[in-house]
Design a protein around this nucleic acid. Sequence first.
DNA 1: CTCTGTGAACCTGTTCACAGCT
DNA 2: AGCTGTGAACAGGTTCACAGAG
Lengths: 245, 245
Amino acid sequence: MTVDGGVSRPARPAARPVGRVDPDRIPQATVARLAVYLRVLTEMLAQGVRTVSSDVLAAAAGVNAAKLRKDLSHIGSSGVRGVGYDVSRLTEQVESVLGLTRSHAVALVGVGNLGHALAGYGGFAQRGFGVAALFDVDPALVGTTIGGVEVLDVAEIPRVCASKGVTIGVIATPAGAAQQVCDALVGAGVPSILNFAPAVLSVPTGVEVRKVDLAVEMQILAFHVSRHDGRAAADGREATGKVFG
Amino acid sequence: MTVDGGVSRPARPAARPVGRVDPDRIPQATVARLAVYLRVLTEMLAQGVRTVSSDVLAAAAGVNAAKLRKDLSHIGSSGVRGVGYDVSRLTEQVESVLGLTRSHAVALVGVGNLGHALAGYGGFAQRGFGVAALFDVDPALVGTTIGGVEVLDVAEIPRVCASKGVTIGVIATPAGAAQQVCDALVGAGVPSILNFAPAVLSVPTGVEVRKVDLAVEMQILAFHVSRHDGRAAADGREATGKVFG
DNA sequence: CTCTGTGAACCTGTTCACAGCT
DNA sequence: AGCTGTGAACAGGTTCACAGAG
C-alpha cells in the first residue's frame, strides 16, 4: 500500500487563495482516483467517445458511480444532467487539477536492478514526466547511459536537481541509503518523492513522500491467502462472478 | 498508491471459524501496517533488542503510538505494562497473522523491462516468497532463464500454476494483456494477484487484487507539486525546517 | 512511576437516495 | 424520460485520554 506522506495542512484558512477550485479541499482519496479516471478518459478520447455517463465511466474505472460523481464534484466538474460528461472537457479538467498541464522533471536515484527498469519504463515518459537525471553511487554505473540519460554520481544531486528544477525524486536504492538520498533531494528543493526502498523516510513538513513497497504488498496478499484458504471450504469455490454489487 | 482490490466481505458471520484471533476482524489498514512493523521488528531482533515500547516501535515505523497499540490489540498482542513488547514474541505473532509461517509460491507473468527486474529483485526471495514460475508470450524470452527459473509460455499458466500450487500471481505485462493473464491465473486457482499493469482487473469474488501503478503515483505527486508551488510564495520557501507551529 | 489496552470522540471517506436540471 | 449533484446517513479508521497493570 501506500503510506501517506507528511504534507502539512494549513492550521487555519489564513486567507485562502481562492481560485476556481481550492485544491486543499480535494480529498486524498479522490486525487488518487482522478489519475485512474484520467487513464480511462484518455482511452475513450482515443476511441472517439464524445460523452460518457457516470455509470459507464465508473464501471470502466472500477469504482461505484456515486463515488465517481462525488469525486468529480470536488473538482467543480460540470456534467450535463440527462446526458453525462463531455469526455474532452472532463479530460482537460482532470489534467489541470492534477497539475499535468506543466511538465515535471524527474530524478531517479539508484539504477540497480529495479532502478534500471524504472528508467526505461514507459510510465515516466508519459504525461510530461521526463527523466531529467539519473544517479548512483556505484562507480561502475556512473558514466553509463540509460535511455539517453547519463548516470551521475550521487554527490551531484544537489547541484543537478537544483539547476534542472527537479520536482519529483524517485528513490530506488537499497534501504540503507534511502534516508541519505532523501535528504539530498529535499536539500536540493525537490518537493515530492516516490520511494521504492523498504525504509521509512523522514522529511520536513511540506515535502510529500509516497511509498511503493513490494515486500509489504506481498505480505498483505499472504494474509489474504490465509483467509482464502480458511474460507474455501465454506464457500465452495465459485469460478467467475460479479466483482462488486 | 495503491488501489484497494476487490475482496468480498462475507455478508454474514456464517459460523465464524473462531481461533485465537479472528482475521476477519483485523482492519485492512492494520494489515498493511503490520508488514511495516514486521520489518522494523526484524531489524531490532538482528540488533539484539529484546524489548520495545510502543513509542519507540511506532517512531521507527513512522506511525503514531496509539495507532500502533490499537493495531497490535487487533492481533491479540500482549505487551507488558510499564515495560513494552517482547520483540521476539511480537515478531512471531505478526508473522503468524500475516500468514508468513508457510511459504508462498509466486508466479510472475511478463518478464519484460519491469518483470525482469522484479524476478531478480530481493523482495521476492525474502520471507518465503519463492518465485515458482515465470511466464511470457514473447518466443524470444520463453526458454531463457532468470535467477535460475526458466521462462515458460503463458499457455502453460493453468497447468503449471495448478501443479505448483501457486498462491500469488504477479502481473507485469502491458495493460492490454493484463485481464487475460489475470483470468488464466484465477482459473488456475491463484487466490491473490499483484498487478503492475495500468489496467483495472475484474476478478470473481474471493480473489484479492492489489495494484501498484507507477503512473498513478506520479500523478498524485504532480498534484502535490502544484500545491507546493502555490504555497511557496506565501511561505517564503524555507529549505529545511518547520513550516508552521 | 512507566507503559499498555481501550472506550469514546472525532474525522475522513463511502454510500444512499432523491431533488432538480435538461 | 435520463442523469447529475448533493445532503444526510453510514462505515471505517484515527486520535485522544485515561483506567489500570506491573
